[in-house]
Design a protein around this nucleic acid. Structure first.
Length: 271
DNA sequence: CACTTTGTTTCCAC
DNA sequence: TGTGGAAACAAAGT
């Protein structure tokens, strides 16, 4: 399940493996995955283009191409980017980069890829994807968290999932961060004390740091670009552990629904 | 079959 | 008008 740590890993590997190389060929196996451009458009614009830079914006992978064009890959849920693997049923796009191949797999086809120019990119980044600060960015401060949460009555989990407030946190890492901070996911944001906010602020960074170190969570079918699964799911304290004992206090982990998402928490550790 | 899963959009009530 | 809560949407495996 691609969330921030996985995307960061992918971006790092993309940078390392593709710098200066040209995309020689692009094989489109499924047109459904690409919106709104057609496969022909996609092919025409990608052939012989050079990957010059890769940036991360939340769960959006942006690859800069010459002539001020950009390839955007939005990874969601079952989306995978893998190097030098055999294509299979769920491989929709194959990039040939030098002697390497990069496959875009997506079992559920929730993600999308598109090519756009500078103006289009501007529109997308300002209108379609309005991202808040990066969890490890300079502008993500405790004061920022306090400022944004103090006036909001929505459940804390809803706000943490809101990419316009904080970029890159998905369901897994929100549940894990809240557990680490000892905060119940349904708590109103405005009811959090300064102490709790500080705790949450640290917890988010800690959880993400650990997740990145472990190579992400292969809870559903996420794999790294090498095709290897991540290891963070072995470190999950609550996510999809409902019915099992809390690793801290032994209470049974509960599951509920917040923001339409499966939400996992320890009723004793999280108040 | 119902249910799960994601990020985002849309709709409705207040 | 803003906000919050919930539903809808994409697709396919369990």
């Amino acid at each position: 399940m691609p969330e921030l740590p996985e995307v960061e890993t992918i971006v790092r590997e993309l940078r390392r493996k593709t710098k200066g190389q040209k995309i020689r060929d692009v094989k489109i196996k499924s047109q459904k995955i690409i919106a709104p451009q057609s496969s022909q458009y996609f092919r025409k614009n990608l052939l012989d283009q050079k990957i010059v830079d890769v940036n991360r914006r939340g769960k959006l992978i942006m690859i800069g191409l010459p002539k001020e064009r950009f390839l955007l890959i939005h990874l969601k849920l079952t989306g995978q980017l893998v190097f030098n693997q055999k294509p299979h049923k769920h491989t929709h796009v194959i990039f040939q980069i030098g002697r390497q191949t990069l496959n875009y797999n997506d079992l559920r086809k929730f993600g999308f890829l598109l090519i756009t120019d500078k103006n289009g990119l501007g529109d997308i980044l300002t209108k379609r994807f309005k991202f808040g600060p990066e969890p490890f960015g300079r502008d993500f401060t405790l004061a920022y968290l306090v400022r944004n949460f103090a006036v909001r009555r929505a459940p804390i989990k809803v706000l943490l999932l809101d990419q316009t407030i904080l970029a890159g946190l998905g369901n897994i890492y929100v549940d894990e961060s809240l557990f680490r901070a000892g905060i119940h996911p349904k708590r109103r944001a405005s009811s959090l004390t300064n102490k709790e906010l500080q705790n949450l602020y640290q917890s988010i960074k800690e959880v993400l740091k650990q997740a990145i170190a472990a190579g992400g969570s292969s809870s559903q079918n996420y794999v790294r670009t090498s095709g290897q699964p991540g290891k963070f799911h072995n470190l999950h304290n609550v996510y999809r552990r409902h019915g099992q004992p809390c690793l801290v206090c032994g209470s049974e982990i509960k599951r509920t629904v917040v923001a339409g998402r499966g939400t996992h928490f320890c009723p004793r550790c999280q108040v």
